[in-house]
Design a protein around this nucleic acid. Structure first.
Lengths: 153, 153
DNA sequence: CCATATAGTCAAGCATCTTGACCATCTCGC
DNA sequence: GCGAGATGGTCAAGATGCTTGACTATATGG
């Protein structure tokens, strides 16, 4: 309360929600910037979330809808975009005439490899920032939180 | 690897970025739902971020722009919305003919009070979920991360 | 007093997500 | 079998939140 805050400022917010938002934003910003720098200009935050859930062997569209917490139409529009960019392709599901399988194209697989590398690089940078122990504690707490808030399965 | 994953699934993503995204989404979802349930129907995630940075005594618009990491036009549109809802008001800055001061209306202050209460409630729920120690470790790691990634000031 | 920087506004457009309506296919009870 | 309802996917329209570009008004410094 004594330091450099001018008379019009109060303390900046400092609660879990704010910190989580900050950290999430930092991650997404670094990741997307690195992906675009690596030549994947089509990359965006929203697409990143979806891509993380497509298995190498192909994933049914409805499975993606269940895992993301957004409407099926939103997933479809994201997939439309990724298909137009040539990152994924949609094939009929041999086991279900209604379903479609979403699968990476070679271009998508290349992006996936770069993504893995970038992910590790950012993690290393963060570990360098806050130390191995704190980073482990962070992951532990976040995993526990997820398990605690979504007790299904 | 043995359990219920069918042959088309691989492991779900489990890295900091994903976990952060999940936790952030959970927080925003719970907070916004509680705020709307408390009668603040105008509440949204984007507005929440902005509101957290408006001091009780009023804050200059340009200061908000600096603290949020978005364009000044985006801030302005958010403020337009909040002003139309009667949550904040804009007054000329007595010290600078160009500037404007953003200040809460009584309606905005009421929302702020409810927000504080809801914030504490969610925190308590989360602490109940993962334990006091893990929660403290989470906050510690997130603060350290912010300090490490934005070393200014 | 003019040049430049700063604070804010207006306008147009893009990306993401939503709801509602719809069609095709599968599954289950009879 | 077969019809009813559930499920997987698509089309269309619209809201929100953000962007860039162009502009006005005020402040500041040589």
């Amino acid at each position: 309360m004594v330091k450099g805050l001018d008379e019009k400022s109060e303390a900046l917010p400092d609660h879990v929600g704010w910190r989580l938002w900050q950290a999430n934003r930092a991650w997404q910003g670094e990741f997307a910037a690195a992906m675009r720098a690596a030549g994947h200009a089509w990359f965006s935050d929203a697409r990143a979330g979806l891509i993380g859930h497509i298995a190498r062997a192909g994933t049914r569209q409805v499975a993606l809808i269940e895992r993301m917490a957004i409407s099926k139409q939103a997933v479809q529009q994201l997939l439309d975009g990724l298909e137009a960019e040539g990152v994924v392709e949609r094939l009929p599901d041999p086991d279900d005439g209604r379903g479609k399988l979403v699968r990476y194209t070679p271009k998508g697989l290349a992006a996936l490899r770069d993504g893995d590398r970038i992910k590790r690089e950012i993690e290393q940078r963060w570990i360098g920032c806050i130390g191995q122990a704190r980073f482990a504690a962070l992951m532990d707490a976040l995993r526990a939180l997820d398990a605690g808030l979504h007790p299904e399965t």
